[in-house]
Design a protein around this nucleic acid. Sequence first.
DNA 1: TTGAAAGCGCTAACAG
DNA 2: CTGTTAGCGCTTTCAA
Lengths: 337, 337
Amino acid sequence: MDIKIVDVAAKAGVSPATVSRVLNNNNNVTSKTKDRVMKVIHELGYQPNAAAKNLRSQKTMAIGVIVPEINNSYYAEVIKGIENQAYAMKYKVIICDTSNNKEKELEFINLLMNKTVDCMILVTPMMSDEEICHWADMDYSIGIVGRYIHHDKVPCVHTDNVKFSKEVVNHLVEQGHREIAFLSGYADAIDSYERLEGYLKGLREHHIPFRPEWIENGNFNKQGGYEALKRLIEKKVSFTAIYAANDEMALGVYQACGELGIKIPEQLAVIGVDNNRISRYITPQLSTVNQPKMKMGGAIVERLIHQLENGEVTDNRVIILESQLIVRDSSRSLPQT
Amino acid sequence: MDIKIVDVAAKAGVSPATVSRVLNNNNNVTSKTKDRVMKVIHELGYQPNAAAKNLRSQKTMAIGVIVPEINNSYYAEVIKGIENQAYAMKYKVIICDTSNNKEKELEFINLLMNKTVDCMILVTPMMSDEEICHWADMDYSIGIVGRYIHHDKVPCVHTDNVKFSKEVVNHLVEQGHREIAFLSGYADAIDSYERLEGYLKGLREHHIPFRPEWIENGNFNKQGGYEALKRLIEKKVSFTAIYAANDEMALGVYQACGELGIKIPEQLAVIGVDNNRISRYITPQLSTVNQPKMKMGGAIVERLIHQLENGEVTDNRVIILESQLIVRDSSRSLPQT
DNA sequence: TTGAAAGCGCTAACAG
DNA sequence: CTGTTAGCGCTTTCAA
């Protein structure tokens, strides 16, 4: 079959151990024998068997990544950040797409946590805090993106949803709006909850009495946003601006407004979250909040691998990255500059 | 440390071999002992060590996927198709993002081809046919998406670039255009070449004399399309329509036209390829060619795994999937319906 | 139907 | 500085 370490050793006239040392940059080898071994390795085109190496060294140099939807641009960007950083740190990346299915999420974590990978990154996981803590307690190395978990060993990277949501409300109020509706995402997603919280706090800061009819759920997707806006209209509740908890739902709002003949931003100001690439191309350009997606992916890899290799948990377990409000035409009341 | 097969065997009062048989659905086990073993497995929460299993069985149940850019929506869709089909066939997916870097591509293939994965899928690889054939000759299981390779053992899935490119030209001619420029992608990408070929054949079918000034390279990205259009204008060559070999370049054309005050489609008809999600949202909506991206990903996995598990090469090694021309406002001369 | 034993290819401890 | 030896945890003959 394939050529193995003993073959190299034999041809180079050394022991397998020496070949192993050469391959793993162990210093205790004469540069002379090292050269000889390297020469044979190249001659034979020897490639160490990863399975054997993994078994023996109890390491795989692989990171498992579980994402809700790989073809969603938000997650694709996070993954890109993970890939880049993993590559820089010499790790491979196994990606599992759950299609927003919690069963699959659990299945994948079980599938990988048997020495298939050294650690895992859960991107906005669907499972509960308790479940995640359960895995962490079993000494599985887990990192989280887009959510905060209260567990000493679990590094988390996320953005300050409350903070930027207040900024969104602030911006809308500055544009003259007092009646602002809110479209939330999945009811159980932490992002939904925190953005709602920021929205409410924003209203309060401006002494705008909150009205529950202003809130509708749009499940973070376009269809949901579309339906939510229609429900809002049917309720005959008055509002002049809408804060959608992500750009996808804002897209649905655009569609509904198109059908209903509602002009954006003249009759309804719209703002989303994510800075999805489409937001810049749609007319009118959609105001949004930029999330440092690639940075988030990179940061969690860095932290997780560091923790894995150095054993100890770093003090900066939780990383909160900054988001920026991007004001475009969809929420500008004045003629654009 | 972790609990292993001997622990299960001991507690169940059987040999490790029996536990292994139970786990691998080997029939030669009494249902009674099987039940007992299963019970212990659950009690102990036993998870077979993947590294040991891989080493012993010479299988990993993993597919390596090498893509140029994971956050590009085209590739993200292909990957989604791969993920879904791999999941259905119980395979894991290791994704490597080359960032359009050929060095990285070679590095990754070397990295994974050592029993880290059972087979690999190269999505529009940058390496030459010779290089790919070289790997295939070494008995590495390789599948290709988006390109045709002349090698018995290498399954390929792609679309008929020549065919749909002729349709594109045909459509533009029907709209009254006779002067059609072409924006190609990377010079060495097979897609570029074939789309150019289809464009030329399309012109010929309509007896339109081809002019070399009509062709510019835009490297498949937005900036490239932007610059290519500007060069085209500077050359003072006359053209009323432009066929961009992908939507990204068409986006660059839009930008350049915006700056130059060229109206689409009145002064310039534009059509792209890929049916990127943005194409539907931009104004005017971009005509394009839809590629069955997810289907392509699924098809290659199916074929590759089949070949891997059944040993023999299937006769339908090359799969050519259909693309559809999607006509939108950017290439319609008449007022839209 | 089950068990004993060998070994997948590598690394690391211990000698020398 | 280098070699010998013993496993990593599993599957798979071969015997019983």
